[in-house]
Amino acid sequence: MERTVSDRVFFHRLKINTRTRVMVFLCLAAVYLLGIFFWGLFMPERAFEVNYTDKLLPPGAGHLFGTDFMGRDMLLRSVKGLSVSMVIAFLAAGVGSVIALAAGVAAAVLGGRVDGFVNWCVDLCMGIPHLVLLILISFMLGRGERGVTAAVALTHWPELTRVVRSEVLGVRSSQYVLAAYKMGKSRLSVAWNHVIPHVLPVYVTGVILLFPHAIMHEASITFLGFGLPADKPAIGVILSESMKYIASGNWWLALFPGIMLLTAIMLFDAIGENLKKLWNPDNGNE
């Protein structure tokens, strides 16, 4: 018999399969982000101290990202700034996700008035433009580190609350959970064996996907002057300072810190999206 080979779908041409690729990517991304985080966290103040002899140097061997108008090394300043942003984002995402988990689960399990109230709060928060809400809260709490952290924490729970609520509702009304109750399982046992394993992956990816938003928003309000004070090496401060120098041709002051911020945000986003894919039992084979 003649065998004609045609119409092939050459999806296996990639030598490494998708799952391995995703794992390698996840590890590299995590190493990069954690690297910046710890490097910045333990960086002494004098690493980017003022040095007027090296004022406004373009990028070169001595200073990879160049220096600013006070002669501070931009690479080290950016790393420190990003690290500060991450600390705030971790704090904020941590608080926000706990609020989201509690509110979402309460809404789904208790239903009725609680559900109505949680949904009302979610709608309220999502109805106000996000940046305006951030500025308001930060301003009310006297700006600074405390103001920014509170603002970012208090404005990032609504989306995740919705996700948690709908996931819990979905799994609670699924046939296998109803059947479990009929087989004499207690609420605790159903929660532990069915509900948590279903909601947890969605929740964790939700939290990871919160980070880029939190970092971005912290940088935004700091940039606008409602966040961290100007003496802090925050990425928002760096970017807003650089605006004054762009016109005079000191492009590196905005470009490199900007790229670092974007890279960090996109990596967090990609980690979240990939984990989502990896944990979904339906497309685990693709």
């Binding site: 699924s174 046939q175 296998y176 059947a179 009929k182 087989m183 004499g184 069915h194 394993p197 279903h198 039992p281 339906d282």
Partner: peptide, 21 residues
């Protein structure tokens, strides 16, 4: 209302009646 129910139901779509995880 609680405990093992002596009346059990089997569904049309078995794939929805089992936990995929």
């Amino acid at each position: 209302k609680k405990g093992y129910c002596p009346v059990q139901m089997i569904y049309q779509h078995p794939e929805q009646a089992v936990n995929p995880r």
